[in-house]
Design a protein around this nucleic acid. Structure first.
Length: 584
RNA sequence: GCGCCCGUAGCUCAGUUGGAUAGAGCACGAGCCUUCUAAGCUUGGGGUCGCAGGUUCGAAUCCUGCCGGGCGCACCA
């Protein structure tokens, strides 16, 4: 049940009536007509801008049209009051029983409440994390991981068929460096004194395990070999080991991808050739020489003819090279293959979650997707800004290169996966995020994780008390939905129901705008409304949830708080966060 | 130099895709604990929405130009 959607239909029906009787012209475009919750509760339950949007094309004054439309809306069974306000808004107030009906349907819908058919089953591919397999995941990776996972869950709830994908960058020079670093540790494992790790190698301790494992499996067979012999095997072994590590880290965050695509395998299978073929067929590949970048030319810049993709035809700033100077494919080329592959597997909407340092890459990839899919595919890139990790306000140093970094695992061990996940979603992904290890464990309103979880726990606590005090009241959703909900008459009770009624709308807007953080703010609002009600009962005993000697009223209030907990749980589920039964 | 993102209360940030008198938390002022969990609640002050134009019934939101901050800028990934 989605009141805003339902009443949009009601408004449209009335507008069509006005078209039929000739009051409004026949060719009127109703697409901009909206029915929304007004910002100010004094403006009623729902508001529509219909008269404002249609007045001009219809050639009438907004207020006049509003009056005409208002008259018709007054006749609707669920509408208790209609007023025309401001420049021509129509504010609707609905009978309490309508909102009681909403609560009942929320309870009956259970976990599926908030599900939408917005996506109509269309396929969406969400690619996230895709970290190079050269070390354990860091807190920075975690943001992309959580944002991508939540976005995927939101798309799924909004009715899309979602694939969660991880693209393994296992083909570039970085994994060769990894292989050499692992080989060094392999020699070390076999008793060799390797001394200080030379620069240009990954120094991390975690590679010791890899070296030892390789030594345990293969013994000294690689020691006397030249690099060309051992490197491919060391590389394969190291990548496999580190991907296992990455998968473990992701599992600790509760994240599981559906598909892992290997860049190397994709290239070997001719993925880039397919890209080239597609682009050449459209005349989008040529040989040319690029201008050096203005302002900050690289020292080793030399004008040189290159194989280029006409990215400028699709809004990019310059055409992009497809081959490196040694003739091998650029990262961009293989990533194009990756995107073409995802598209050919059926996803016309592609969502990529990237770190801020890849911001300059967005235009070319969008251009590539447009070119490769002849405009049929759409790429949305969610850029995640830096996470500033602090402890009591003091920055915690992170440096992957130096090997002395804060791993995701350490942070999870300290504060728990649910806290990490929730906090990562409390900001727009393209804004920097402050993550204070001390603050996120505080039990105060200042800490959104706690505040939202506490709302859920508080409901469960009251339900437990109710079981003791009112053993006759069954607490299942169906029974509560059938209780005397008309006893819910307090303005704050009704306001809470209206807020709960916005959940489907919120899911859709988060999906349409690719903004998972909206869910976090919504949950905070729901928690605040609930806590407010709880406190109101402290001052006014008649507003408590459990009313001695009045099981009917108590059941109705239990329905309200159970519905609240259900929506909170639904939102947390989208975030991959477990709602708690009690605070400890 | 160019591109992308950002600029909203003292601080940290929302702002329903262009709507009505711009909101919340923290901090500050004033109140509130015999209670279903005070791990909180109520209430007050606090704003040229970076600046200047433009678009229109209507702009924090869209366009242009500035100012300030972040990221990026052949052949890395």
């Amino acid at each position: 049940m989605n009141p805003y959607k339902d009443f949009k239909e009601v408004v449209k029906t009335e507008l069509e009536g006005l078209i039929q009787d000739g009051t409004l012209p026949a060719d009127l475009d109703l697409s901009r007509v909206a029915v929304e919750p007004p910002r100010d509760a004094a403006h009623g339950d729902l508001a529509t801008n219909a008269a404002l949007v249609l007045a001009k094309p219809a050639g009438v004054k907004p207020r006049d049209l509003a009056d005409t439309l208002a008259k018709r809306l007054r006749g609707h069974a669920d509408v208790s009051d209609v007023e025309v306000a401001g420049p021509g808004f129509i504010n609707l107030r609905l009978h309490d029983r309508y909102w009681h009906g909403c609560l009942a349907s929320i309870l009956r819908a259970g976990a599926s409440y908030g599900d939408s058919d917005l996506g109509r089953g269309r396929a969406v591919n969400v690619e996230y994390v895709s970290a190079n397999p050269t070390g354990p995941l860091t807190v920075g990776h975690a943001r992309g991981a959580v944002v991508g996972d939540a976005m995927a869950a939101i798309m799924a709830k909004a009715g899309f068929s979602v694939t969660r994908e991880y693209y393994i960058n296992d083909a570039g020079t970085q994994v060769d460096t990894l292989a050499r670093s692992a080989y060094l540790r392999y020699r070390e494992a076999l008793g060799e004194e390797i001394g200080e790790i030379p620069s240009g190698y990954y120094p991390g301790e975690y590679l010791k395990d890899v070296g030892q494992a390789l030594a345990a499996r293969d013994g000294p067979k690689w020691l006397a070999q030249p690099e060309a012999e051992w490197l491919p095997e060391a590389r394969r072994f190291a990548i496999d080991s580190l991907m296992d590590l990455v998968r473990e880290d992701l599992a600790a965050l509760g994240i599981e991808h559906d598909v892992f695509t290997s860049e190397r395998a994709l290239v070997e299978a001719g993925g880039v050739d397919a890209v080239l073929k597609t682009l050449e067929a459209r005349g989008l590949v040529y040989t040319g020489t690029l201008e050096p970048p203005k302002g900050k030319a690289p020292e080793d810049w030399e004008p040189r003819p290159q194989t280029l993709f006409r990215a400028t035809d699709f809004g990019d700033d310059v055409d992009r090279p497809l081959r490196k100077s040694d003739g091998s494919w650029t990262y961009f080329s293989s990533d194009m293959a990756n995107h073409l592959d995802k598209y050919r597997r059926g996803a016309s909407t592609l969502i990529d979650v990237w770190g801020a340092d890849h911001g300059g890459y967005v235009k070319r990839m969008k251009a590539a997707v447009e070119a490769l899919t002849e405009g049929q595919g759409r790429l949305e890139v969610m850029i995640c800004q830096l996470v500033k990790l602090t402890r009591q306000g003091v920055p915690v140093k992170m440096s992957k290169r130096a090997g002395v970094f804060v791993t995701l695992r350490e942070v999870i061990d300290e504060v728990g996966k649910d806290v990490v996940r929730f906090i990562m979603l409390t900001r727009k992904n393209d804004a920097p995020l402050d993550f204070d290890l001390t603050k996120v464990m505080e039990q105060s309103r200042d800490n959104p994780v706690f505040y939202v979880q506490y709302a859920h726990a508080r409901v469960r606590s009251v339900m437990r008390h109710a079981q003791e005090a009112f053993p006759a009241i069954a607490q299942d959703p169906e029974t509560l939905a059938n209780s005397h909900l008309h006893f819910l008459t307090d303005s704050d009770e009704l306001a809470l129901i209206r807020l709960l009624a916005q959940w489907p709308r919120l899911v859709e807007s988060a999906a349409e705008t690719f903004e998972p953080h909206r869910v976090a703010f919504y949950l905070y609002d729901v928690a605040a409304a609930f806590h407010g009600l709880w406190t109101k009962g402290k001052d006014n005993t008649r507003l408590r949830f459990l009313i001695e000697g009045n099981p009917e009223l108590t059941a109705a209030r239990l329905a309200l708080i159970r519905g609240t907990a259900q929506v909170v749980a639904s939102g947390l589920d989208v975030f991959g966060v477990q709602p708690v039964e009690e605070m400890r």
